[in-house]
Design a binder for these strands. Structure first.
Lengths: 200, 200
DNA sequence: GTCTATATAGGGATAGAC
DNA sequence: GTCTATCCCTATATAGAC
């Protein structure tokens, strides 16, 4: 509009097209097995052209990670906002997490166990983005009526593990739907404490 | 003894030395980022020499996976054997799993989310080895007094996810010990049903 | 059995034309 | 901004000497 440049051809600009394409491929094949040539080809460009937008493959990863974590954090905050009961918040959070994680936008590969061994310096950035998201979860868990001998940090990590692992077994065409996977987990965990997940 | 060949130099034969070394490196850096050169170097051989024992990197992976799953299955069976109460069995299983997963032998990277895109044919072999182990868990879970609205398959997958995810956050030098990580998870899950894990 | 040497392929990244 | 062409490195794997 302002510049008069028509970006509507792709619906998004080239930068974002590359990010979206990369996210999808990283998600499908993993970072290591996705080549610059793969990304370029899928985005309808030639390899050299990518370097106009990003100075390295690692930088593409950083952008995908950053956007992905923002999507996840936003979804989490929006999901818990309407609720007061902490178990309801946790359920809403689990549902949101599962849905973002398992939908096919491909943005959530980045909860993968290992980063592509970035330089330590950049790893700090990734860790900070993750910590921000985990803080949201930690706050909800802090409000739960957990038994004294439950470690809330380990509770959070095992909660996230149970959800994230679904990436390895979830199939879109059969079995439980993403939102039900989230609900199921909280049902398992909550019956230990309140009996049911229902707004008080 | 029988052949008179002295294999005591390394404590194990070359074949097993390569397997052990590979397991450790795969565990530390992942399959993709571990090169044949890395393995050879760590094992004190030159790259070409590996091909006397294995015809490809993929074949090394298959052997590591096979041995690793055997270690895990054996540990699981041994752990649950002394118990009668199903929740005690599950706890014993969780403890055994965590210990094998998180010790530093490095054999357990293979619970990683993705296989190194082997040929479909060989993937069948890997899946069979995993299914065998999961059957042990499924049997124990089948004996639990779970609520009617709990899906025992999803329960198993979320249980395994919570445990396997510890690979991403466990640190040998701080935090909870492996066996306590296993116990903690079952405590969370069991209090939903029996109150405590204790032999009846 | 282990080594040296190398074939062959694919990767990330860059220079410079257009 | 995108393409062509290519550099350079690293990877797996092999052939054949020892």
């Amino acid at each position: 509009m302002l510049t008069g440049v028509d970006l509507a051809t792709e619906g998004v600009d080239r930068f974002q097209l590359i990010v979206n394409t990369s996210a999808k491929l990283f998600s499908e094949k993993g970072f290591d097995r996705t080549s610059i040539r793969d990304i370029a080809s899928a985005a309808g460009l030639l390899p050299g052209s990518l370097y106009y937008y990003f100075k390295s493959k690692e930088e593409i990863f950083l952008e995908v990670h950053s956007q992905g974590m923002k999507i996840l954090s936003d979804a989490a905050r929006e999901a818990i906002a309407p609720h007061k009961d902490p178990w309801c918040k946790l359920e809403a959070l689990a549902v949101a997490h599962s849905q973002v994680l398992l939908d096919d936008s491909g943005f959530m590969f980045m909860v993968a166990a290992r980063f592509p061994e970035c330089i330590a310096e950049q790893n700090q950035i990734l860790m900070k983005q993750r910590d921000e998201y985990e803080a949201i979860i930690a706050e909800v868990i802090g409000e739960l009526d957990l038994a004294a001998d439950i470690d809330s940090d380990v509770f959070r990590l095992q909660f996230l593990g149970a959800l994230n692992w679904a990436q390895t077994w979830y199939r879109k065409d059969r079995g439980m739907a993403p939102k039900d996977i989230g609900k199921h987990l909280v049902k398992i965990l909550c019956s230990a404490h309140n009996g049911t997940v229902r707004e008080k």
